[in-house]
Amino acid sequence: MGQGVLTKPILPRLRHFLAFGAPGITVYACFVLAPIVVSFGYSLTNYNPFSPPAEYVGLRNYRLLFQDPEFLLSLRVTTILTAIVVVVPNVLGLGIALLLDRRGWFYNALRTVFFTPVVLSTVVVSIIWIRLMADDGLINQALRGAGVDDPPGWLSDPAYALYSLGIIMSWQMLGFCVVVYLAGLQGVPHDLREAAAIDGAGPVARFRHITWPMLAPALTINTVVLLISAFKIYDHVQVITKGGPGAGTTATVAYNVIQTGFTANRQGYASAMAIVMLVIIAVACAVALRLLQRREVQL
C-alpha cells in the first residue's frame, strides 16, 4: 500500500520527463556525446581513411602529442590568442557599455553599430580586415600619412600576425560584451546609486562599490563565452593567415586538428588533438566558472 502511494506521484512525473526531456536528451546524446565518444575511440587508433584497416595503438597518440613541437607551438599560440580575446573585449566592452548606458535614439543606434560585427560572417569580417591590414591597406596608408615611413606588416610579419589576429577577433566579439554589460547595468538599482551620490560618493567610488560588484554575473558570462570562442578559433586563421606567416606562427590547436585530420589524413592523431583540446577547454571553463561564481556568491 505504501509503495503504491509513493509510486503514483512518480509515474506522472516520469511520463512528463519522457515527453519533454527525452527529445532534448536524445538530440544532445546524438550530436554532442556520441561524436565525443567516437572521436575518443579514433584517438586510440592510427585511423587513416585512405589506409585501412585501423589498428589499436592505445595511448600512443597522446604520448606523441606532447612530444610534438608543432602541437606544443599551437598550444602556446592558442593560449596567447585566448588571453588577448578574453581581456580586450571585456575591458573595452565594459567601458563602452558605461558610455552607452543612457536613453535616446542616438545611444540605441550606437548599440546597434557596436553589435553588428557579432552577427557578421567570420569570412566577411576576415576579408574586411585583410584589406585594412594589408601592407598597402588603409591602416598603413594612414600611418604613412601620419609620418611613419615603414609601417609594420600586420599580417605578413611573424612578430605582429598573432596579435593582429587577436585584435580582429576582439573587434568581432566586442559588441557581445557590450550588450551583456549593458544588460547588467540595467539591473543596477538607480536608487542605490543616487543614495551613494547623496552620501558624497564620486563616480569612481560608485562604480567600484556598487556598479562593478553587481556586474559579476555579466563578467562570468562574457569570460566563459570568450574563453570557449577563442580557444576553438579556426575560421579566422584559415581565411586570414592559414597558420602563417612562417611555420605555425598563428596555427591554433583547432587549425592543426583540421589540417592533420583532413589534409594529412591522420584522423586518429587529429582525434587525440581534439580530445586534448576538449579537456583543456572544459577544465579552463570549470575553473573560471568556479572562481567567478564564488565572487557572485560573496556579493
Rank of each mutant, 00 (worst) to 15 (best):
G244H: 01
G202I: 12
L162D: 08
Q186P: 04
R208W: 12
A196F: 04
N222S: 13
P152I: 10
W154Q: 05
V225R: 05
S164R: 02
P213K: 03
Q172M: 11
A218V: 06
V180N: 04
A264R: 15
M214K: 15
N222H: 06
V224C: 04
G246S: 00
I198H: 10
G200M: 03
G244Y: 00
G175I: 03
G246K: 08
T249K: 04
I221Y: 07
A161L: 00
W212F: 15
L185D: 04
G184Y: 08
V224A: 09
F231V: 00
T241P: 02
I258C: 01
A247M: 12
P213R: 01
F176P: 06
I221S: 11
A264C: 09
T220Q: 10
P152C: 13
L192Y: 02
A197F: 01
V253Q: 09
D235T: 13
D157Q: 05
I221A: 10
G243R: 09
N256S: 10
G184V: 02
A218K: 02
V179E: 04
T249P: 00
P203V: 14
L219Q: 15
L227Y: 12
L165P: 03
V239N: 00
I233R: 06
D150N: 15
A251C: 04
G200D: 06
Y160G: 09
Y181H: 12
F207T: 08
P189N: 09
F231L: 09
I258K: 13
I210K: 10
S156A: 13
V179N: 11
A247G: 13
T260S: 04
L219K: 13
H236W: 11
L182G: 07
I168W: 10
V257R: 02
A161R: 02
S164W: 07
P245E: 03
A251N: 05
G248Y: 03
D199Y: 00
V178A: 00
G244A: 07
G166V: 08
S164E: 02
S164K: 02
G248P: 08
H190N: 12
W171T: 10
G243K: 07
Q186E: 14
M214V: 01
L185K: 05
I258F: 15
A196S: 11
A254C: 06
L215D: 05
L155A: 01
A247W: 12
A197Y: 05
F262I: 09
K232N: 13
A230D: 03
S164A: 15
I168A: 14
P158I: 14
A251D: 12
L226V: 08
P158R: 14
G244I: 10
T211H: 04
Y234G: 02
T250P: 13
T211K: 02
G246D: 11
L165Q: 12
P158T: 14
T223R: 11
G187S: 14
T250D: 05
V257T: 09
I198L: 15
A161G: 05
T249C: 11
D191I: 04
S170V: 01
T260W: 07
F176C: 11
